Amino acid sequence: MIRAVLMAVMLFVGLARPGFAMDKPTQDGVKDLTLKAAAVVEASGLDPARDRFHQDGDFKYGEIYVNVIDYNGTWLIYPPNPKNEGKSVLNVKDAEGKLLVQDIIKTARESGEGWVEYHWLNPATNKIQPKLTFVKNVASRNVIVYVGLYK
């Protein structure tokens, strides 16, 4: 009986965040979450999305959080450190010197969506780690939504 209850709870938790096993992100899960977040931004706008993305829950937990930038490279939503919202990150380089925001903008603008890889500080471990990020252009709002997966 206890085993059946535990299995049901694990199944429920797994269904709450598709593509995530025991809250360990997967590429498919990150892509799905990015597309879901982009739909929220498109439907409700930045302010309601910001409120939702800053709260712990489906859009922010552990190492998972939703970023939103404009086409000029200004952080509009950055849950790990909201005081940086409104700042330009266009020329920010990762730990290996890659202009990651420019790559994110280029991928979103040219392809509509896609993957960008770089090295970034993981707020859950406080260490620089390789990160694979799925980006989605939300043209109707002139913004780019992205979520990353630390390797």
Results as ranks from 00 to 15, higher is better:
Thr133Asp: 04
Val143Ala: 13
Leu35Val: 14
Pro25Asn: 03
Ala37Tyr: 03
Ile104Leu: 13
Asn81Tyr: 03
Gln55Cys: 01
Lys127Ala: 02
Lys98Glu: 06
Pro80Tyr: 01
Val30His: 03
Gly19His: 02
Pro48Gly: 06
Asp28Met: 09
Ala124Tyr: 03
Glu96Ala: 06
Ala49Lys: 06
Asp23Glu: 12
Val135Ser: 02
Tyr118Gln: 09
Arg52Ser: 10
Asp32His: 10
Trp75Gly: 15
Asp70Trp: 09
Ala39Arg: 11
Asn126Glu: 05
Asp58Ile: 14
Phe59Ala: 05
Tyr78Asp: 01
Gly14His: 09
Ala16Asn: 11
Val40Glu: 11
Glu42Asn: 10
Gly29Ser: 07
Asn84Pro: 01
Val68Gln: 13
Gly57Ser: 04
Ile64Asn: 05
Lys36Thr: 13
Leu149Thr: 00
Tyr61His: 12
Val135Thr: 07
Asp23Ser: 07
Ser88Ala: 08
Phe53Arg: 01
Ala38Tyr: 05
Ile77Phe: 06
Gly57Asp: 01
Glu117Ala: 07
Ile77Asn: 10
Arg17Glu: 14
Gln102Arg: 14
Leu149Gln: 07
Leu132Val: 11
Lys98Thr: 05
Lys131Leu: 02
Leu46Asp: 08
Lys136Gln: 13
Gly45Arg: 02
Lys131Ile: 02
Glu96Cys: 00
Glu117Pro: 01
Ile144Asn: 10
Val5Asn: 04
Gly148Asn: 00
Arg3Asn: 13
Val138Gln: 11
Pro130Ser: 04
Asn142Lys: 15
Ser111Lys: 15
Lys24Asn: 14
Leu76Gln: 12
Gly57Ile: 12
Asp58Leu: 15
Ala95Phe: 04
Leu132Arg: 09
Ser88Leu: 07
Gly112Ile: 03
Ala4Ser: 02
Val135Asp: 10
Ile104Gly: 01
Asp23Gly: 00
Val147Leu: 10
Phe20Val: 05
Leu132Ser: 12
Arg3Pro: 00
Val13Asp: 01
Lys31Thr: 02
Lys98Asp: 02
Gly14Met: 03
Gly19Lys: 05
Leu100Met: 15
Asn137His: 14
Tyr146Trp: 02
Ile69Pro: 00
Ile105Leu: 15
Val5Gln: 14
Gly97Cys: 01
Val116His: 06
Val135Pro: 00
Ala49Trp: 03
Val66Trp: 08
Ile104Phe: 06
Thr133His: 00
Ala43Lys: 14
Gly45Phe: 04
Ala16Pro: 04
Asn84Asp: 14
